[in-house]
Design a protein around this nucleic acid. Sequence first.
DNA 1: TTACGCCACTGGTCTACACAAGTAAAGGTC
DNA 2: GACCTTTACTTGTGTAGACCAGTGGCGTAA
Lengths: 249, 249
Amino acid sequence: MEQTFLNQIAAAMKQPSGSLPIYRQLANVMGELLAQDDGGVGSVLPSERSLSAGLGISRVTVRKALDALELQGRLQRRQGARTVKGDRMQKRISQLSGFSEELRCRGIEPGHRWISRQTVLPTPTEAMALGLSGTDSIVRLIRVRLADGMPLAIERAAIPQSVLPSSDLVGDSLYALLTELGVAPIRGVQRIRAGIMAKSEAELLESSPGAPLLIVERRCFLEDGRPVEFTETRYNGERYDFLTELGRQ
Amino acid sequence: MEQTFLNQIAAAMKQPSGSLPIYRQLANVMGELLAQDDGGVGSVLPSERSLSAGLGISRVTVRKALDALELQGRLQRRQGARTVKGDRMQKRISQLSGFSEELRCRGIEPGHRWISRQTVLPTPTEAMALGLSGTDSIVRLIRVRLADGMPLAIERAAIPQSVLPSSDLVGDSLYALLTELGVAPIRGVQRIRAGIMAKSEAELLESSPGAPLLIVERRCFLEDGRPVEFTETRYNGERYDFLTELGRQ
DNA sequence: TTACGCCACTGGTCTACACAAGTAAAGGTC
DNA sequence: GACCTTTACTTGTGTAGACCAGTGGCGTAA
């Protein structure tokens, strides 16, 4: 087992992969093998030293790759004992991903119904969140998000016009468009709170006034700190919840 | 500035701190200094090499400490440019910490009022969450959590009796006790959802029925996967919310 | 058979060095 | 003054080697 694993890694590492650092390549390759591998939780992996020797990579570099994989929960290490495969298959909510992507990961077919899509001036809240003056236009997108055809949430997104020139460009996936434009956000902060459904919201969500709402506000940034998006999503509290992992360290 | 910063670190590092690895000591010390320091975001920190030389620590070790701090968002690094102070002062919810600790970080004085504290048989939900049979006893702790004297949440914790022999041992902080017993949890999963306040809950929280609730269920484990704690906390949705960071990578 | 201790091996920490890649400021040229 | 080049310095990546501490299997002694 160990030898085959090592050979698989060696083979995969030989393929050119765009001049990534070695430790990152190794983490990617091992991550894929861990995902494919049928062996359940607890499968034993090659030791650091045999990886180092077998791949011709220094042990320090191997450890950097393993550090990353351990942080992701893909493997478990214990001093003195062998490194074994980890158990976290679920997505962490701390990942930055679009609504559709997240739902598909849960095995649910995402969808949406547009409520409005226009270029307007921001509300004070939106202007504050995006660091704009009141006279800088934004693109505001409001839609009902569907899960397997049922209304799940009301989403209200604001993007500076300097980032997204026109609301007409937006198709199904906002994230896909932002990626295409080269302004995909990579950092963000998120606030989660509870609320009560108003009558207008209850109609859109096919529920009843007074039902619980899970409200998520999200601000996303580019690497340089430029704000890209401010989104408020009001989930039907009876149909949705969040899973978070609480971390070592 | 740089020299004083270096001296402060050197002084703090001299104090014994329980045989932690050097890189962890350094990360802690620098973390505290970053928190105290009045210099705003962007303050320049000493270079890796000057830290290494000034403290008599190898650069690799210094880098491990800086890696940890960067991961926490306490500082920002850019190849070729100097390392500067970061902007995240808030705690990440993905940290595993007790209620009191978390509130103190927000500058609020925590408190609690016991409702009950007993050794009983688990409910089916608790037994499932803790991986127990229905005949294994648990310690169940129910209390109202206070923030600056105001009721903030109702907390209901279940701990296997094999972990916590008696409910009498529990004082103010459950986490402090678990740490003392050597069974402090280090991993966990958390579910966040919304609900509506019932009459009995509204009385305890000094609110009114129908108000929003933020419900957090948490399962915590030891390193080896042994469950330690299952807690449901029902926060007053009008007085509390969660902040999460969404992550690069 | 059981208990203990040894030992090979594992991951955890640390050092010292080297080169690559990026930044910013000093200095010169026009 | 505006612009470009040089240069000193920064962080990023990688290597080789060392020692420590914990694990688990094997052999030996009770």
